[in-house]
């Protein structure tokens, strides 16, 4: 009877302390969770901005401009274009258009 009583008291104390401990843990971890949320949001923002940026940079006018100025590329004349024609799996057929 006496051991049961002591046991119950101990259990009661233990459970009370664990509540305190868990609530403490909760308070410690929650800011970390919200920091992670914020981090996720920030990364999401960055990703979306990068998507938009990529699309903007890949606009045709932009690329064309880059190709002709920085890349010094221009469209080849028709008489120097070679066409490679797939004749069978083993052979390529080369055609020259003039």
């Amino acid at each position: 009877m006496r051991t049961l009583f002591v046991g119950l008291i101990a259990f009661c104390l233990l459970s009370a302390l664990s509540i305190v401990w868990i609530r403490h843990e909760n308070r410690v971890l929650l800011p970390i969770l919200y920091e992670r949320y914020a981090q996720r949001d920030d990364l999401n923002i960055e990703w979306r901005n990068l998507l938009a940026e990529r699309a903007t940079l890949s606009r045709r006018a932009q690329l064309k401009n880059w190709a002709s100025t920085v890349g010094k590329m221009n469209e080849p004349d028709r008489d120097v274009v070679l066409f490679l024609k797939k004749q069978s799996n083993d052979w390529l057929y080369l055609e020259h258009s003039q």
């Binding site: 066409f83 052979w91 057929y93 080369l94 055609e95 020259h96 258009s97 003039q98």
Partner: peptide
């Protein structure tokens, strides 16, 4: 003209 100037590779 194209077909007259072909080459096999």
């Amino acid at each position: 003209l194209a077909s007259s100037r072909t080459a096999h590779y």
